[in-house]
Design a protein around this nucleic acid. Sequence first.
DNA 1: TGTACATCAGTGAACGCGCGTTCACTGATGTAC
DNA 2: TGTACATCAGTGAACGCGCGTTCACTGATGTAC
Lengths: 232, 232
Amino acid sequence: MPRSVDNNARQASFETIKAIARQQMIENGTAGISLRGIAREMNITAPAIYNYYPRLDDLITALLVDAFNGLADAIDKAIASTSNQRDQMIRASNAYRNWANANKSDFQLIYGNPIPNYEAPREVTVPLATRPLVSFYQVMMQAYQQGKLSIPPDYASVPKNIEDFVAGFLYPQYPQTAEMPMSLYYLMTLLWTRIHGIVMLEIFGHLEPSVGDVDTFFSREIAIFLDNLGLS
Amino acid sequence: MPRSVDNNARQASFETIKAIARQQMIENGTAGISLRGIAREMNITAPAIYNYYPRLDDLITALLVDAFNGLADAIDKAIASTSNQRDQMIRASNAYRNWANANKSDFQLIYGNPIPNYEAPREVTVPLATRPLVSFYQVMMQAYQQGKLSIPPDYASVPKNIEDFVAGFLYPQYPQTAEMPMSLYYLMTLLWTRIHGIVMLEIFGHLEPSVGDVDTFFSREIAIFLDNLGLS
DNA sequence: TGTACATCAGTGAACGCGCGTTCACTGATGTAC
DNA sequence: TGTACATCAGTGAACGCGCGTTCACTGATGTAC
């Protein structure tokens, strides 16, 4: 029988490597990860890293997975923290924004420049990419089914080609959405783009100089959106 | 008297260098600019580049300046192409989006990851950064003064701290805004974040899979915003 | 209790590479007279 | 028309650097019997 590996220490090294890589992204951009730099930081020689991540790409993939899950977990946790659906939407939106600000480089890794010469493995990445948004959709859906949310007249109809496109993947791939009106999907996607726009400008320092108090600016945008749905 | 320099050829070299640098950003990310690579592409040795840009940073600054001006020019041109103010707003928004899609790396240079180890000279960059938006504000202001635009009740009042912050720089630095209501500034900034959110998700390929037809999605977002202002 | 063995994280030297930047220089071109 | 001169874009060699990756290896640790 082989000797029992010290899995705790090994696991800790995996985490240390990722943590240093994250630090490197903060300091040198998402393209600034370097195996040799990580080794230096760990007081280890560079080839030792290969015992954990056989290629630089494997490390980047691990960071991507962590980032998607981290953002999604933050949102899920925010939603779980209350049962009022308006509060759930507000807290989930705040979670998106706060996570982005607290984890700028991870957020860029997900939603910003692709890393040169790195190709994400689609079978890992594509299902994960939807995770941050699904809980948002669920809350909207629940509120709708309970009659606490109504679709504003402006959005009652969805452009035919968008409707066809979305229906082509949404209902087949996500059976739980079978009773979700297309307008609800449309509105939620719109909310996503609005949240994302504020967050993207904010994390790169373009919004604060324009409004001073991004907190209030952001909260108002979310609140008015929810008001328009009658979700109180 | 010194010989007359061939300024046309020299000017052309400046442009060639920038064009190749832009191509490099597209292929290798905004951090992927390399003087040696540019020289190689031009069939020239690397030190020759120093006759044009004494440092890599100077080249990046030149690209930044071009990018800000390019985006601003596109928007100004769109506004000049019609006199109807609703159309001006729509075309300006489209110009922002289309320019970003046609010049992804330049757009990222402006609004995305900062380039590692590059510090933009603030005296050049800060005034330029406002250029893309000023024309938007002007159109809104004109329409308002001509009574073609009204502020929706939701936005009639602007949070006190934001109002104070904005008043602190807007009126002193831009005297032409003296008669601009704070709500109008607020609404225009909001429109910017909404445009920006859609554009940022789109250029990195996250929005098309969600809605199929980004054109329509974008147009609707702008149209509904303008409808709410009563600008027809 | 002692010995032979398997495991495997980490070592150290080496590879070939591309990078930004410096330096003294060359050689074509145009100007002055 | 001819000659001496100034300009200056571009050359070629060199610098020191950090990178990802490979390879044969060492040496501590724990297991089997």
